[in-house]
């Protein structure tokens, strides 16, 4: 039986309200047999310190990436991972994590490459769950093995590669990094190590809208009206636009991808996961410096 959607009024405004659930909704549905909650964090040990009771862990670094090639897992690898976590193709998969759900959105985007039918993000993520004093557990659930078919990864719809971004120059693009990274002053986030790219700056024409602007103080997504003021207003995106988003390695931009694709309903949004660590290291691609697109 399908797991019902969260009917929260704030979500009804979004283009795809079925993609988000509240912490309250999750706490009521934890025991649903057709639902699996998964935590995805930047810090690989955070899940072990305590997580939503019954939640499994999906690690971006060791599980969603190919261990050798800079790419995501392939169809057989994804099927193995999902089955092992007790996730079947018809499971409702609810993701949440630290840092305003930034890694959870990344995991959701990777699951979307395999077209998992029912994916949802817990609004506010780990921060909100803990701030509300909801229960956490260190028990690792022993779920029965899931039944997951091998699905070919589809990189054509929501993923952009460098040659496609070169062909996209002049069309709408959002750089979600911090202003210092965008202007070329920094090669990494403020307070993070300076590494990863030989050149600083941004892809010519890209507008700078830091990903965190889509999040409110309590880590939840801003309302549809607030998001429209930012993306349609300030960033001047039009309803039919084909948009490319990027950051440093494609994780922060997954958060903005989720906002544009699922909350605002833009028809084509692609995440360029090569992002600045590819572009800023590539010989002879155009780069713009400074605060202007």
């Amino acid at each position: 039986m399908a797991v019902p959607y969260d009917s929260a009024a704030k979500f009804a405004e979004y283009a795809h309200p079925e993609m988000v659930v509240t912490t309250e909704w999750v706490s009521r549905h934890l025991d649903d047999a057709d639902l699996v909650v998964a935590e995805s964090d930047e810090d690989v040990l955070l899940y072990e310190t305590g997580h939503v009771p019954g939640a499994v862990k999906l690690d971006w670094h060791t599980e969603l990436n190919d261990p050798v090639t800079r790419d995501y897992v392939d169809g057989p690898g994804f099927a193995r991972l999902m089955s092992q976590e007790g996730i079947s193709r018809d499971t409702t998969l609810v993701l949440y994590g630290d840092k305003n759900n930034w890694w959870a959105a990344y995991a959701l985007w990777v699951c979307s490459l395999f077209g998992h039918p029912d994916l949802r993000l817990m609004d506010g993520g780990r921060t909100k769950w803990i701030a509300e004093g909801r229960p956490v557990s260190t028990d690792v659930p022993q779920r029965p093995q899931g039944i997951y078919p091998v699905i070919d990864r589809d990189d054509g719809q929501i993923r952009a590669f460098q040659d496609q971004v070169l062909a996209h120059l002049g069309k709408p693009m959002i750089d979600v990094r911090s202003p210092g990274e965008y202007s070329g002053e920094l090669l990494h986030m403020p307070d993070y190590p300076q590494e990863g790219a030989l050149r600083g700056g941004h892809i010519p024409g890209a507008r700078n809208v830091p990903w965190s602007r889509a999040a409110a103080e309590d880590a939840t997504f801003r309302t549809r009206a607030e998001l429209e003021a930012i993306y349609a207003g300030e960033a001047e995106l039009h309803p039919e636009d084909d948009v490319v988003v990027y950051c440093r390695i494609g994780e922060r931009s997954s958060h903005t991808w989720f906002v544009l694709q699922h909350l605002l309903g833009y028809p084509q949004v692609r995440n360029y996961d090569g992002s600045w660590t590819e572009w800023g290291n590539t010989v002879r691609v155009p780069i713009a410096r400074g605060e202007k697109p």
Binding site: D43, V44, L45, L46, E48, T49, D98
Partner: peptide, 9 residues
């Protein structure tokens, strides 16, 4: 911070 267990480790 407690929220950074890897670094603490």
């Amino acid at each position: 911070p407690r929220e950074a267990p890897t670094t603490r480790g």
